[in-house]
Design a protein around this nucleic acid. Sequence first.
DNA 1: TATTGTTATACTCTATAACTATA
DNA 2: TATAGTTATAGAGTATAACAATA
Lengths: 153, 153
Amino acid sequence: MDIELDRPGLTDDVGFLLSRASGRLVRASNAVLAGHGLRVRPWSVLVLACDAAEGVSQRELADVLGLDPSQIVLLVDELTAAGLVERRPSPADRRNKLVLGTAAGQAVRTAAARDVELALAGELTDFSAGERQLLQELLTRLVFGGGSAAGRG
Amino acid sequence: MDIELDRPGLTDDVGFLLSRASGRLVRASNAVLAGHGLRVRPWSVLVLACDAAEGVSQRELADVLGLDPSQIVLLVDELTAAGLVERRPSPADRRNKLVLGTAAGQAVRTAAARDVELALAGELTDFSAGERQLLQELLTRLVFGGGSAAGRG
DNA sequence: TATTGTTATACTCTATAACTATA
DNA sequence: TATAGTTATAGAGTATAACAATA
């Protein structure tokens, strides 16, 4: 392509690279999630709902996922219609609606997680376990800041 | 959030982290690019067109950007209307249309690149130069594979 | 008054198919 | 027949504003 400049090109742009990498992984994940009737977005809501023993408020979902609360409503609606989660009013604050995974939701979450992990591994074949771990840590810091990301070691 | 499971959660998912990180940087980039009448997508086309001395075919643009050729058409249309690039039929193969940056396009590319770099640096304040370089290399391998990404050392 | 959830709307991005022209 | 570009369309993702219920 005969590029001979001493200024950074597009392929040096971390934002561009992140966008390309994200698109690639989202496509791969959506492909396997389709087998469970899901896409990446509703699946991420399902995971958070299933992993929180007491349920998650829609506000918390919006914060963790980086989405507007109005988008959460639609995603929870969709998962509720599929019988994978349910809304339960919070006893402490009736404004809050806690989202919890149903038994069916838990089963789908576990099975889908396996497929997503396989799809992810397929995209990361060139990476050693250490490199993947490194990438994960750098991204966690970028997204959630320097602190602990999820309260887990 | 009382998560006490020994299975990976959403925040351990590299795909999720990439999606969040990408969204964050795209938003930050779009914010500064708006001052130049651009968004990330057309800007990336502008950069590639300006950096290729002989111009880039729309097919090449589609390959590097990971987009369908039909999307390239609209982006080049938009940049052409703004006077930032022009289409020139390839002398070697008249099916090909080479996209080249105009003088105005070169000026915008340079000015916008500065702003984008500042926005990027603002999102990466917690990263050392070495960590940023490391992230860039990992992402380059993920997107373009193990080989050299752009023919540059 | 502030917060949670909801509805509505518009715009951007993404994916696909079908068509033209050149080779 | 194969490839580059184009047109058209539909669906998913994103961004805002306004509103109701509760605190």
